[in-house]
């Protein structure tokens, strides 16, 4: 089998949740892949499956959820086939995660220095003899006054400081992949800018790949090499960042970009008509078809496959197969 990325290749990932309302078909065959040291953005609106994708890759889906299908190739192993012991070794060592609410991922009863130390010892990245020294070094890397911060409890940290501690812990084990799930959405913009700069510098120096989950197109534009756009449980468009902004093809991606306000470009904002579907009873075929201006019969029956329509640009839309993407730029018009 050909791997599409030399670090990660997720194929046809499906996840469901059993709820009192019925079965939520949260992931409907997600495809995505990454190369080593790459920065991949995952964007899409609330509920489209960004976090569930990350959790499923890490095998952190719990009852009432279930992974029903798919492969998660991480280098040469399918993570979905590993034993729980083997998977535990991957989590936190080869793949680390940081989240939106850093404080809730820290243990409130231990000082931050102690928590970093435990992480290092567990991952065998330090010995009891040099652990203290390593902790200080790592806190220094994330721009903090180590002697003060290591003795602080999580509730004493500001949101930005807590996120730095999380980053310190996540990168301490030198993971090959860092998954950042909305790491700055709860922070103020000046602090967000600090955290993004820090993440950018450290991961570049250490050579970690980063999967950046966000709903902010600004962060995508400034941070990511490549982007996956998700809609209602599918990757609908995958492209290098510049290509995606310059030449968005999927009608949903186009709609999303037109809805984003941007400094220096006043004018109409256009909303996407309709609302996101209920995943208990999602539309057949392309899940976007009820909201799509271009939908035709074929869209309503079978999910369009994610196909490469030009170099490194993948789209899941029948228009591209029909007559060469008429949904793309109209002549003379700005793409979005």
């Amino acid at each position: 089998m050909d791997k599409r990325g030399n670090l990660l290749d997720v194929r046809q990932l499906r996840v469901i949740f059993h709820t009192y309302r019925g079965l939520i078909k949260a992931l409907n065959g997600v495809d995505l892949w990454m190369d080593k040291q790459e920065r991949l953005g995952i964007v899409g609106e609330t509920g489209c499956g960004k976090s569930v994708t990350a959790q499923a890759m890490m095998r952190l889906i719990e009852e009432p959820g279930k992974i029903t299908e798919g492969e998660v190739w991480f280098e040469n192993r399918d993570l979905l086939k590993l034993s729980e012991d083997e998977m535990t070794k991957i989590r936190g060592r080869e793949i680390s995660m940081i989240f939106q609410e850093p404080k809730s991922s820290l243990n409130p009863v231990f000082k931050s220095g102690f928590q970093i130390k435990e992480t290092l010892l567990n991952a065998k990245k330090a010995t009891p003899a040099n652990a203290e020294e390593e902790v200080e070094k790592i806190l220094g890397y994330v721009g903090m006054d180590a002697s003060r911060v290591k003795n602080m409890y999580p509730h004493e940290l500001s949101g930005g400081m807590a996120q730095r501690v999380m980053i310190a812990m996540a990168l301490a084990t030198q993971p090959k992949l860092l998954i950042a799930d909305e790491p700055t959405s709860a922070l103020d913009v000046t602090i967000q800018a600090q955290i993004l700069e820090l993440l950018s510098d450290l991961t570049q120096k250490m050579g970690n790949a980063v999967m950046m989950i966000t709903h902010d197109m600004g962060i995508v534009a400034e941070f990511c090499d490549r982007v996956v756009v998700m809609y209602a449980g599918n990757a609908v468009e995958v492209a290098p960042t510049k290509e995606l902004f310059q030449n968005p093809i999927h009608p949903y991606t186009q709609g999303l970009l037109r809805a984003v306000p941007r400094v220096g470009r006043p004018g109409e904002l256009k909303a996407i008509p309709g609302t996101v579907p209920d995943l208990v009873d999602p539309p057949e075929g392309c899940r976007f078809h009820p909201r799509c201006d271009y939908a035709f019969d074929q869209c309503k029956n079978v999910l369009p496959p994610l196909l490469e329509i030009s170099a490194h640009h993948y789209v899941s839309c029948y228009l591209c197969q029909k007559d060469g993407c008429p949904s793309a730029k109209k002549a003379g018009e700005e793409p979005w």
Partner: peptide, 24 residues
């Protein structure tokens, strides 16, 4: 600095990012 911290959804835009140091 507030304006400069605001991420802009334009990957072609080139600007010097100046990050505000320190906590609020």
């Amino acid at each position: 600095l507030l304006m400069n911290s605001n991420p802009i959804p334009d990957p072609f835009l080139k600007r010097e990012k100046q990050v505000v140091r320190g906590e609020i």
